[in-house]
């Protein structure tokens, strides 16, 4: 059992550290910390899993654990799929609005080499994004 406890504590510490470095939003951190905490409890209190599995009628305690863990992960992945769908939708709306705004800008200022101008906008956005991720790394 100590191996299980060590593993659970490592997971807990990892999640905590990721939140500290702003690699993980608090919203998901709470979820993962709760999961890590549950691992710690189950690992240190050996009798708990056995009594849970007995209560729900599963003969092997590890199977009970697998059922619980699998269900948790399944729901989590489903949730992420829904988040990804929403983000894709929001990104599409942003792309359309950006493109319309750029077109309007170009129509208003036909000179000043407008063809390159929006290239610049995109390059600036891309470089600012990469510089932000880069600035994050040294901090961690």
């Amino acid at each position: 059992m100590p191996a299980g406890i060590i593993f659970a504590v490592v997971v807990f510490a990892l999640v905590f550290e990721m939140v500290r470095r702003r690699r993980l939003g608090e919203r998901y951190a709470i979820l993962w910390l709760a999961a890590a905490l549950a691992l710690v409890v189950l690992a240190s209190w050996g009798g708990l899993l056995a009594s849970i599995s007995h209560a729900v009628g599963i003969k092997t305690p590890s199977n009970a654990f697998f059922v619980i863990a699998f269900t948790f992960l399944l729901l989590l992945v489903l949730h992420f799929s829904s988040v990804a769908s929403r983000l894709a939708d929001e990104t599409r709306v942003l792309a359309q609005r950006l493109a319309l705004l750029e077109q309007r800008l170009r129509a208003q200022e036909p000179v000043n080499g407008s063809e390159d101008e929006d290239e610049d906008l995109i390059t600036v956005a891309a470089s600012s994004r990469s510089s932000r991720t880069a600035s994050r790394r040294p901090r961690g």
């Binding site: 599409r92 792309a95 359309q96 950006l98 493109a99 319309l100 750029e102 077109q103 929006d118």
Partner: peptide
């Protein structure tokens, strides 16, 4: 643009639906 059309340049590929919808927005 050289042929005389107004051009909306999407920053990345949205697929036909997103592209046509940009046209509806315009």
């Amino acid at each position: 643009a050289a042929a005389g059309a107004a051009v909306i340049r999407l920053p990345f590929n949205l697929g036909i639906g997103g592209a046509v919808q940009a046209g509806f927005l315009y």
